[in-house]
Amino acid sequence: MMSQKTLPIALSNRHIHLSQGDIETLFGEGYELTKLKDLSQPGQYACEEKVDVVGPKNTIKGVRVLGPARNKTQIEVSIADSFILGVQPPVRDSGDLAGSPGVKIIGPKGEVELPEGVIVAARHIHMHTSDAENFGVVDKQRVHVRTKGERAVVFENVLVRAHETYALEMHVDVDEGNAAGLKNGDLVELVII
């Protein structure tokens, strides 16, 4: 039996989530992030602050900080970014940082040598628990997602993240989105086989 539902997709560019300790090292003691704009997920926002990320090979300047502060610092890059930096990050779910490569982070007031924390974020769908019920899926289930258009693809192994605070949206990185000819807000189909 096959069921299909549509949902919006968003392309995620490189960004960094910082711990409060790293925020203070990079921007100064007691520093609080400055909200630039809200993101689609409730409580999440892009900040005015940017940092430079230094890998063994090259530096990527102006990486956007996302708020609020997290327990651990995490940098999400695309595979193309990883070539620039000279690191080999694993494809991982957010927060799964064990064994991932580290880099140096440079802010206006200081630097952080991150021992681990660079990942390529695994494609995933955020959905409210009521959306999960409507779609007939559960938290941590893996599904397929079909796109439309000239470069249509089927994304396999897409993680469902269902929670009462999430808003419905699929996230892929810019490499995946560009390869499939997608732009923010395009509708895609969740397929349960």
Rank of each mutant, 00 (worst) to 15 (best):
35 K>E: 14
115 P>V: 06
148 K>P: 04
65 V>L: 03
87 V>L: 03
49 E>P: 09
37 K>T: 14
192 I>R: 11
175 D>I: 00
109 K>F: 02
145 V>A: 05
2 M>N: 15
58 N>V: 03
37 K>D: 08
29 E>C: 07
16 I>W: 04
2 M>K: 15
1 M>R: 13
116 E>W: 01
7 L>G: 10
187 L>Y: 04
17 H>S: 12
70 R>N: 07
148 K>E: 14
175 D>T: 03
98 A>C: 02
83 F>G: 06
154 V>D: 11
130 S>Q: 11
91 V>K: 11
54 V>D: 05
46 A>T: 10
9 I>R: 07
88 Q>F: 00
156 E>A: 06
180 A>L: 04
14 R>S: 13
94 S>H: 03
109 K>S: 14
155 F>I: 02
81 D>R: 12
112 V>M: 01
92 R>Y: 00
93 D>I: 07
119 I>R: 12
63 V>S: 04
45 Y>K: 09
138 V>C: 08
11 L>R: 10
97 L>P: 09
24 E>K: 12
110 G>T: 11
51 V>W: 10
129 T>Y: 00
187 L>I: 13
126 H>P: 10
111 E>Q: 14
23 I>G: 09
50 K>L: 05
120 V>R: 01
191 V>S: 11
166 Y>L: 13
108 P>G: 12
13 N>T: 11
35 K>M: 12
53 V>Y: 08
22 D>M: 05
166 Y>F: 14
84 I>G: 09
27 F>M: 06
161 R>S: 08
165 T>P: 06
66 L>F: 01
169 E>Q: 15
129 T>S: 15
45 Y>V: 10
138 V>K: 15
52 D>P: 06
163 H>E: 13
132 A>Q: 05
95 G>K: 11
30 G>V: 02
117 G>F: 00
185 G>V: 01
187 L>M: 15
34 T>H: 12
189 E>K: 10
99 G>L: 01
155 F>S: 06
167 A>C: 07
118 V>G: 09
74 Q>D: 07
122 A>Q: 15
80 A>V: 06
47 C>S: 12
1 M>V: 07
134 N>A: 14
99 G>F: 02
133 E>R: 09
74 Q>C: 01
186 D>H: 12
156 E>T: 12
48 E>L: 00
2 M>D: 13
155 F>L: 14
56 P>T: 04
85 L>T: 08
190 L>Y: 05
48 E>P: 03
63 V>K: 04
18 L>Y: 03
187 L>K: 15
185 G>Y: 02
30 G>N: 12
169 E>H: 07
11 L>T: 03
119 I>T: 13
69 A>D: 11
28 G>N: 12
42 P>D: 11
52 D>L: 02
153 V>I: 12
165 T>K: 15
77 V>P: 05
50 K>Q: 14
188 V>D: 07
